[in-house]
Write a protein that binds this DNA or RNA. Structure first.
Length: 550
DNA sequence: CGCCTTTGACCTGCGC
DNA sequence: GCGCAGGTCAAAGGCG
């Protein structure tokens, strides 16, 4: 016959209960019972009184297996409540009582008041009251947790449903967009471009990708000024404007020839001028000049005159820019002869601790590991800008989508400006997103959390970019979820399905991202790149003493 | 001597 | 056409 109740608490090897109006606790569960009862939040079971003889002990053990506990016999085997347990239980009861009072507004009589404990004489009535309170407390806790569990389950179901629906919606939209692009007849301009590109491909024959038309739309005027006259003679539909421009270009070339006949001492060929002066290589340089139009700008806090990105730079100019008291410095890459990469360095006018570094172009030479992360990120960003083939409603790329997917972190960290003279990607490292802490991922050994305010080493800088890129998918899906359903964040796996769909749908995106990631991964292993490092001169930025404004 | 920065001049695109 | 601003060149000088 049952004479009491016991409770097992989840994630606890202890039981509490009362028997004949006396609270008992501190009973260790057997492993079998432990495993079994952890499937439930709180288990209640009847308690019998048993004597100490052998038969009753065996019966007691059977009851234990069935979920019943004989506290009385257990209590006889060993002293249940030691000092430590008593202290813990007192604290737990106190806390639970406080929570109960908060939740219910009722004053719970715990029965563990010092006045009743200290005198050492616990009357049956007090014991009874205390036990009942304890039971009530546990029941309330059980109900509260059940309710919370239900609520969370419902929330999770809703989030999952919304996520699935949005995923389907995105896939449908992308499919429709692709069908529209396939079925849309090319207009005369596009046909002209296609013919032109085909002829270029024939001449080139080395598989260098031609920049898609969409980039031209982003940077109006680029095509006209950078196309060589030879290209124009090939084109099927020349117009008067182009011819006039060609004449202007030719006259400009004549003016320049006298100045540029002398070979550059370093082999540097100005990319803006080269196409007009070197008709034998119109495609490479035309492509290169358009590549230069994509600019990746990095904002980072640094007291150093220049961010150490692992490359070698030579300063070739300095100018006072309008609206900024700090001069702008111009650098070009000197790691290889004729490398077209340039960068501009300028302090932010509003906050001079912020260093704005703009990169332009793609390195035409192998890079040391220290420079890999930076170069890969900027190159991938530039490639994405140039290819611009992310589907969107208007057939052009969607800058916001780009910023959220390809580029590190959230939209406030990476922005794309298509309205600027050049399409520009801005990576803002001055805001610390701390994605590692956000999702409690263990940081890579080299990464410093939080982001160091002064990024003065290529490793730190590249790592910062790397980590931002690394979490871009996660961040994107988060923003996506947040914006669409205003639900609490559900941590998504890296490269969520939504992003994966976007990636697989766009080969340019895939290529750019893959290149960046593989380069970054490759760059983390010094053995993967033994070029340009023969002197061990990996991290030489030689312009440190001449920062504008210092 | 080679490589670098500095700096004034020049080039170029764009808006008016 | 003109002026402005951004970008580039190249001579001069510094530095190791």
């Amino acid at each position: 016959m049952d004479k009491g109740w016991g409770l097992t608490l989840e994630n606890s090897d202890h039981r509490v209960g009362f028997f004949e109006n006396k609270p008992v606790f501190g009973f260790n569960l057997s492993p079998r019972l432990n495993t079994r009862n952890r499937d439930h939040l709180i288990n209640m079971f009847p308690v019998n009184s048993n004597g100490g003889n052998k038969e009753e002990q065996q019966a007691s053990e059977r009851r234990v297996v069935l979920g019943e506990v004989d506290f009385f016999s257990e209590k006889k085997k060993r002293p249940i409540i030691n000092e430590e347990e008593e202290e813990v239980n007192a604290f737990v009861k106190k806390e639970q009582s406080r929570e109960f009072n908060l939740n219910t507004g009722l004053q719970l009589v715990t029965g563990s008041d010092e006045s009743t404990v200290d005198d050492g004489i616990s009357s049956d009535a007090a014991e009874d009251k205390r036990a009942k309170n304890e039971l009530a407390l546990l029941q309330v806790e059980l109900e509260r947790m059940n309710a919370e569990n239900q609520r969370l389950r419902g929330m999770l179901t809703q989030v999952n449903n919304n996520y699935t629906a949005l995923q389907m919606h995105l896939a449908t939209l992308m499919q429709q967009q692709q069908q529209q692009n396939n079925s849309r007849p090319a207009d005369s301009t596009q046909q002209h471009e296609i013919v032109e590109r085909k002829s270029e491909e024939k001449k080139q024959g080395n598989g260098v990708p031609i920049v898609p038309r969409q980039f031209m739309d982003l940077a109006p005027g680029v095509e006209q000024t950078n196309s060589s006259s030879e290209e124009r003679t090939i084109s099927e539909s020349p117009n008067n404007n182009n011819n006039n421009n060609n004449m202007m270009e030719l006259s400009r070339n004549k003016r320049r020839i006298g100045r540029e006949e002398t070979p550059e001492s370093e082999g540097w060929v100005p990319t803006n001028k080269a196409p007009k002066l070197s008709p034998s290589k119109p495609i490479d340089q035309s492509n290169e000049s358009t590549m230069r139009k994509a600019r990746v700008s990095v904002r980072a806090r640094s007291e150093a005159p220049m961010i150490a990105d692992g490359c070698q730079w030579r300063k070739y100019g300095q100018k006072m820019a309008k609206g900024n008291p700090c001069p702008r410095a111009y650098y070009r890459c000197t790691m290889a002869v004729g490398c077209p990469v340039r960068k501009q360095v300028q302090r932010c006018a509003e906050d001079r601790t912020i260093l704005i570094t703009s990169y332009e172009g793609t390195h035409n030479h192998p890079l040391p590991p220290a420079a890999m992360a930076m170069a890969s990120t900027t190159s991938a960003a530039a490639n994405m800008l140039l290819s611009g083939s992310m589907p969107s409603a208007d057939g052009l790329m969607n800058p916001n989508f780009l910023a959220r997917t390809m580029l590190p972190c959230s939209s406030n960290m990476a922005t794309i400006s298509a309205s600027a003279p050049f399409p520009t990607v801005t990576l803002d490292l001055t805001q610390n997103p701390n994605p590692l802490q956000q999702f409690q991922r263990p940081p890579p050994p080299q990464f410093q959390v939080p982001l160091p305010p002064q990024i003065q080493t290529p490793q730190a800088f590249g790592q910062a970019l790397y980590n931002q890129s690394k979490f871009s998918g996660l961040q994107m899906s988060q923003d996506f979820n947040e914006a669409s359903q205003s639900q609490p964040h559900q941590p998504q796996p890296l490269f969520s399905d939504t992003l994966s769909a976007a990636i697989t749908a766009d080969p340019n995106f895939t290529a750019a991202l893959a290149a960046a990631i593989s380069s970054i991964i490759g760059g983390s292993h010094p053995n993967n790149n033994n070029n340009n490092n023969k002197n061990g001169n990996v991290n030489t930025s030689n312009s440190n003493n001449s920062f504008p404004g210092n």
